[in-house]
Design a protein around this nucleic acid. Sequence first.
DNA 1: CGGGGCTGTGACAAAACCGTGGCGACGGAC
DNA 2: GTCCGTCGCCACGGTTTTGTCACAGCCCCG
Lengths: 243, 243
Amino acid sequence: MSRVLIVEDDRHIRELIVLHLGLEGLACTAVGDGHEALALAGETAFDLVVLDLMLPGVDGLTICKALRHGGPNEDVPILMLTARREESDKVLGLESGADDYLAKPFGVRELVARARALLRRPRASVLRAEAAAHSAGAAGLDERPLAIHGMEIDPARRRVRIAGQDVELTAQEFRLLHVLASHPGIVFSREALLSRVWSDQTFVTPRSVDTLVKRLRRRIEADPATPARILTVWGAGYKCADV
Amino acid sequence: MSRVLIVEDDRHIRELIVLHLGLEGLACTAVGDGHEALALAGETAFDLVVLDLMLPGVDGLTICKALRHGGPNEDVPILMLTARREESDKVLGLESGADDYLAKPFGVRELVARARALLRRPRASVLRAEAAAHSAGAAGLDERPLAIHGMEIDPARRRVRIAGQDVELTAQEFRLLHVLASHPGIVFSREALLSRVWSDQTFVTPRSVDTLVKRLRRRIEADPATPARILTVWGAGYKCADV
DNA sequence: CGGGGCTGTGACAAAACCGTGGCGACGGAC
DNA sequence: GTCCGTCGCCACGGTTTTGTCACAGCCCCG
């Protein structure tokens, strides 16, 4: 049974990695802090390290070099993650001792495939986690038009009108609005929205929901600074205002 | 770093368990097949086994007995899961060597709390107390609204109303209220509340529970000095007043 | 009725959380 | 090829929430 150490400060991505590698039969340990990672790696030998390049405090590169410098994980394969696709980062990562490199956002399959390749273990996969993944695809969203807060939302035509005026929305903004407006008052966590609005299974930070909300508010709120339609629920998520 | 073996055929439950235990810093290995579980357990020593009673192929009880029969996991704590709440199943499970028992549907927080408790090898009395709290009603992240003491608590809307008036609560206050109000009359120790209300693996002083109770009372009690809803049980903890 | 724990409370610092602008990457249109 | 719309991520700053502490008050017990 292989042991995998995951160093990633974003909790959501950490969750996804632990989940999918764990389901592959790997023993996953996840930490969000560089110091903790070094402490763990100093006393336990791992078979693979998944390492985020961008970390608060101790840098991913520093960890990479520290691992290579000696100790029980001197020769451990390192899979490096980063938000940036730039070649310079890649070179930097590989030079500091990483064995493979993956840029966010990336798909689960790719991560698992690369982890497996690094582990060089031709073991029969126990389960196929991806099988039912696409069940959420087109299903789930209602096609009926709905009206709320002076907005007319027509899913079939993918059109929104406010005060008789057509409002241009991107596909993603529309999906978000539709999910929220279909359940006024119900609070959706960022994770819930990720699974409903982002159809494909990619690693996306929950904070990206904030960005999408910001962009949606710019379009449908009279004053985006004091939203009346899409409300923030502190510590929980977002909701469409009750009637 | 503790190793946990999870044997569960339902993919979603497997995911949940791996995710949350993995985030607790535990090394999780998940399998959906009984044969695979026995093969793994025959060669590796685990610190905890989470075992589903109902499995296709090799039965959970069979696995339980096989583990106890000898090998590297002879004395491993076993947390048994089942879809049925019936007493006969429980007895069967405990007799075959399980250390604790959890009926589906169960809350994630509760699972984590019990897993940690088993890893800590707690006194039997603690276990009994938690079991009593559990049997008193549905546990964890229940989405069903409930009404008690003139309060309407709606988890999906994250809303509390007293006498028709909306009461603003922070996320933490809401979780505390929900845990207590879901089990009226049941006394929760500060430690029990810490594991249920504080989702993260953060280490927080039990006295912080007092502060949270104070803040909650300020919002939902007519006179916070003489609480009628959230009661102090001297030397034990807190409870929601019985009806 | 006095003492030794428990618990309630206010204040403060630390942490978490959210809004926002901006940057780079990607992909389609032309 | 270039331009442009979209998208994800990050960093910064303001705001809210939350953990801790110290001290006062309370309860139970002898």
